[in-house]
Design a protein around this nucleic acid. Sequence first.
DNA 1: GATGAATGAGCATTCATTCAT
DNA 2: AATGAATGAATGCTCATTCAT
Lengths: 201, 201, 201, 201
Amino acid sequence: MEPTERKEMILQEAKKLFAVKGYYQTQISDIIREAGIARGTIYQYFKNKEDLFVSLLEKYYSQWEKNAYLAEDLDLAAVSPREYFFHRIRRTLEFFAQDQDVCRIYLRMGLGLPGELESTISRFEKKIEDIIVNDLNLGVRNGHVPEDMDVRLVANLLGGALLRTAYLYFGSGVDPDFDLDRAARKICDILSPAIFLPSVP
Amino acid sequence: MEPTERKEMILQEAKKLFAVKGYYQTQISDIIREAGIARGTIYQYFKNKEDLFVSLLEKYYSQWEKNAYLAEDLDLAAVSPREYFFHRIRRTLEFFAQDQDVCRIYLRMGLGLPGELESTISRFEKKIEDIIVNDLNLGVRNGHVPEDMDVRLVANLLGGALLRTAYLYFGSGVDPDFDLDRAARKICDILSPAIFLPSVP
Amino acid sequence: MEPTERKEMILQEAKKLFAVKGYYQTQISDIIREAGIARGTIYQYFKNKEDLFVSLLEKYYSQWEKNAYLAEDLDLAAVSPREYFFHRIRRTLEFFAQDQDVCRIYLRMGLGLPGELESTISRFEKKIEDIIVNDLNLGVRNGHVPEDMDVRLVANLLGGALLRTAYLYFGSGVDPDFDLDRAARKICDILSPAIFLPSVP
Amino acid sequence: MEPTERKEMILQEAKKLFAVKGYYQTQISDIIREAGIARGTIYQYFKNKEDLFVSLLEKYYSQWEKNAYLAEDLDLAAVSPREYFFHRIRRTLEFFAQDQDVCRIYLRMGLGLPGELESTISRFEKKIEDIIVNDLNLGVRNGHVPEDMDVRLVANLLGGALLRTAYLYFGSGVDPDFDLDRAARKICDILSPAIFLPSVP
DNA sequence: GATGAATGAGCATTCATTCAT
DNA sequence: AATGAATGAATGCTCATTCAT
C-alpha cells in the first residue's frame, strides 16, 4: 500500500470512530484495530492523537472551503438574490450530505461524552424541538402558520437559530447592560416573516 | 457551612470549570482546588465525576423546563401569535443570559477538546459566520436586504439554523434518496422572508 | 445503653461481618450500619479497625483458653487416657459449636478475598476432600476400611491433618535435606491405624 | 526476554509477595518493583490484580491436580492399601515441598492480615499445638503413647484434623440438633488408634 | 459520650507515546 | 517503513480516621 493511501485509510477509520465515540472515547487502540495496523505505525503519519484529529478537521475544512467559495463562481448579476441564497444553502447541505461522520464531528455532536451524559444533553435538545413543534402545530390549527409547513424542519431551523444566537450573546460573558427585550424583539421581527402567514399581526 | 450550601458550592465551581475546560479536561483535582475542599468530600455529595456532571445538567434542565413552560401561562387568546413567539424567544434568552457557563455547556461549546482542536473547530464556525456576513452586506449594498439589519445577528441565526438542519438530515445516517434540491429549496423559501426585502424576487 | 453493652454490641455485629466478608472486605461503614451507630462512635471504644478485630480475637481466645484448660480439671487418675482425649475433642468442638462466626474467623475461612479468589481457593480444598472420599469408598468396597466409617468426616480429618503438616514442614522455608519419604512414611504409619482394619497389611 | 518468560517472571515475583504479605497487603507497586518492570507492563499480561492472583492459583492448582491424579497410575492390585495411602501422602507433601510460597498461599497462611492480626491468630494455633504436645508428652510419661512418637508432628496432625472438622461441622451454620457427644466420640474413636498404644483402654 | 461531615494518603488502572528490532 | 512490548505520568476513587459541634 502506498504511504499516501495508508495515511488516507487511517484518517477514514479514525473519522468513523471519532464521529461515533468522540475524541476522548476513541482510543488509539480502537483506531489501529479498525485500520488493521500496528500501534507504532500511526505515529509514522501523525505526530500524535491530536494531530490526527486536526488533520481530519483540516482535510474536511479545506474541502468545505473550496465548496463554499465555489458559490462565488455564480454570476451574481445573472442570478436573483434568492437563487444565490438557495445555492449557498444547497452547497452547505451538499457538504454535510456527503459524509455523516464529518457532519457529526463538525456539528459537535460526537465530542464523546460517556453515554449517560450524552443522552442527558440530547434530551434537552429534543425537548426544545418538541416545544417548538407543538407551538407550530397550534399555529397551524389557529390559521397563523401555513398549513403545508414542514414543522419538524422549521422547529430545527428555529431551534438552531435561537441556540446559536444565545451563544453569540452570552457564550463569552454576559454584558450586564444587555437589553433582553430589545434582542428578543429583534429576533422575533426577523424570524416572524419566516413562519407566520402575512395576515398575522 | 450547611451541607446543601456545600453541595451547591461544589456544583458552582464545577460548572465554571466544565464550561471553560469541558468534561474531560476538568479534573477532580481542579474542582477540589477551586472549591477549596478535600478530595474525598466530592464523593460525599456525588457518586462520581459523571454523576456530578449529570447533576449539573439536570439542575439547569429543570430550571429551564420550569422557565420554558411558564410561557404557557400566557393567555393565548389575549396575545397575538407574534407576541407569543416573542415571549418564547425572550424566555429562552433569559435562561441563557443568567449564566454564561450553563450556556456554554448546553450549547456544547464547552465539551472540552484540547486547545488546538477547539480552535480548529471554532475557526470553521467563525468562517461560516463571516461568509454569511459578507453575503448579507452585499445584499444591503444591492438593496435586497434591509439597510438596518443587524447582520452579525442574522448571520448567527442563519448559520445556527442551517447547521442544525444539516444535523437533522444527516446526523444519523444519510438517506441515499435524499433530495438535496428539494430540501435546499424548502429551507430557502422558509428563510427568505426573514432576510430579503418584500420586493426581492 | 450501658457503655459496656454498647461495646459488646459493636463486637457482635463486627464479628458477623468479619466472619462472612473477612477483614479487608468488611468496611467500618458496614459495621456502623449494622450496629446502628455513628461513624465516630466506634473510635470511642476501639483505637482503630485493627484494634477492633484484635479485641474480637482476644475475647474468644480467652474464652477458648478458659474452656480448653478446664479439661485439666478432669481427674487424670480417674479417667482413662481415651476418656481424657475424648474430653479434649469435645471441649474444642463445643467452643466452635457455640459460634459459627468465631469458627470461620479462627479457621481462616473468612479472611475476605474477593469472590472469585475465595472460590478458586475453596475449589482446591473441596477437591482434596473428594479425592480422599473416593479413596476411602474404594477401601470400603475392598474390605480394607471399616464399612461403617463416616467417610466425609474421616476425609476432613485426614485432609486437615495432612495440610497442616505440610505447613509445619514447608511453611517457613523448605529444608533442602528434608527427607520426603521418611516424613510420608511416618505420617502414613501414624494415620493408618485410624482408617484401616487391623487385618490390612 | 520472551513474552512467556516475562509473564512467568511476573508470576514468580508476585507469588513470593503474595505468600509473605498476602493479597491485600501486596501492592501492584511491590510487584513491579520486585519484577523490575513498569507499572503498565503488568496489565499487558493480566487483566488486573485479581486476575494475576487467580492465574497464580490456577497454575499451581493444575500442577497439583496432575500430581494428585498421577497416584492413580499406581497399580492398585499390586500395592497394598497402606502403600497406596503412603503414596498419596508422599505426593501431597511433594507438591508443597517444591514451593513454600505456594504452600503458604494455599494453606491460607499468607492471606495477608496486618502484622498484629496475623500474630494474634497464629498465637491461637500455636497454643493448640502446645496443648496437644503437652498432653502427648504426658501420655508418653504415663506409658499410653509410644515413646518414639514425633509429638510435634502428631500434634499438628491432630490439630489440623480437629480444626478442619470443626469447620466441616460449624462453618456454614450450626445445626441446633447437632450431637456434640456423638461427634466427639466418633472423632475420638477414629483417632485413638493413631496415638495410643494397643494396650490403652 | 455521640455524631457525621470532612479529610487525604494511598491505590489500581488507563492509555498515549516510545523505541529497539 | 512497520511493529508491538514496554513505559510511566496522570487520574478517579476508596475508606479508615479525625474533630468540631
